[in-house]
């Protein structure tokens, strides 16, 4: 009991002095500024999200005829419609498969490459590291015209599976770069001991490195998944048939039809936002502290 009482105080003291407004703390000015500032930011951040929620739960009458901010009564009709009467479940499944496959392939490629670049001695290491970063930074907008042309001759085009190949453009350099950063923090004596034991390189990779870097690798995987889940442009360019569409293009077409079905659209949007948002809430701790260096999202 005594320790639990003592600890927060001990921690809070230095931390409190560290912050910018520490001196204003007792004056109340700091609190007022924080309260107003964060209040404005919260409203600014949340109103579109609440509008999605509100729209998705309103009967059509509240949406178009007698408009209201909040639902006059809550209905699940839009959710039923989007799940039963549209191909949304198919889109969702396609997105899930594409994002999962992209993530798995990218992680394997990244772990192998990052191991080579942090633990093996060979000429050309610097060049490959530089090429990886440059590739990560090259914006896909510069590539989509030629890729569109190339993809038209490929066997996979038009199928969701073809998107996996395209998504590796972002996923592989990104995960490789982050994996290099994490592998660099793993002390090398661990591995030297394993070498004496006669473990092979590949075994040391999977028995020592991967388990040690597992939390980090999980975070990288979550980001890769989210990126593939959210991708729009290439899916739009390469997918035509309904059965192969992913969620972003599927939802976008809800709007381009003749009828603007905002209710089902917002219901679908809410469902489609859940995976990345949940992933992000779970990984939030590492987002701020761990992923410095700027390699976060494309």
């Amino acid at each position: 009991m005594a320790t639990t009482m003592a600890r927060p105080a001990a921690v809070r003291q230095p931390a409190a002095r560290r912050t910018l407004g520490a001196r204003l703390r007792r004056t109340g000015v700091r609190n007022a500024v924080l309260f107003v500032g964060l209040g404005i930011f919260t409203v600014w951040t949340l109103f579109p999200i609440l509008w999605i929620v509100s729209t998705s739960l309103k009967p059509d009458r509240d949406l178009y005829r007698k408009v209201s901010l909040l639902p006059s009564r809550i209905t699940n009709a839009h959710y039923v419609e989007v799940l039963r009467e549209t191909p949304f479940p198919t889109y969702f499944r396609n997105s899930f498969l594409v994002a999962s496959a992209t993530t798995v392939i990218a992680m394997v490629v990244a772990v192998l490459a990052a191991y080579a670049m942090t633990r093996l001695s060979f000429r050309g290491r610097g060049f490959v590291a530089r090429a990886t970063i440059v590739t990560y930074l090259i914006p896909p907008a510069l590539l989509f015209i030629p890729l569109f042309q190339v993809a038209q001759q490929m066997p996979f085009t038009g199928q969701a599976a073809g998107l996996v190949v395209i998504y590796l453009i972002f996923a592989v350099p990104f995960s490789t770069w982050l994996a290099i950063s994490y592998f660099n923090t793993i002390p090398s004596d661990l591995e030297d001991a394993a070498m004496v034991d006669g473990a092979s390189r590949l075994r040391s990779l999977f028995t020592i490195f991967v388990p040690l870097a597992l939390p980090a690798l999980a975070v990288i995987a979550l980001f890769t998944f989210t990126h593939a889940w959210n991708e729009f442009l290439f899916a739009l360019l390469l997918i035509g048939r309904d059965s192969q569409k992913t969620v972003p293009i599927g939802l976008h077409e809800f709007v381009n039809g003749d009828v603007f079905a905002w209710g089902p659209l917002m219901a679908g949007s809410l469902i489609a936002s859940l995976p990345p948002v949940l992933i992000y809430v779970l990984a939030q701790k590492w987002v701020v502290s761990g992923l410095g260096g700027g390699a976060i999202k494309g």
Binding site: T42, H252, S273, V281
Partner: peptide, 16 residues
Amino acid sequence: VLFLPWAMPTIIVALT
């Protein structure tokens, strides 16, 4: 809460 927009799919943000 303040980081939420960043996690949402861009196309959904645009449609909203």
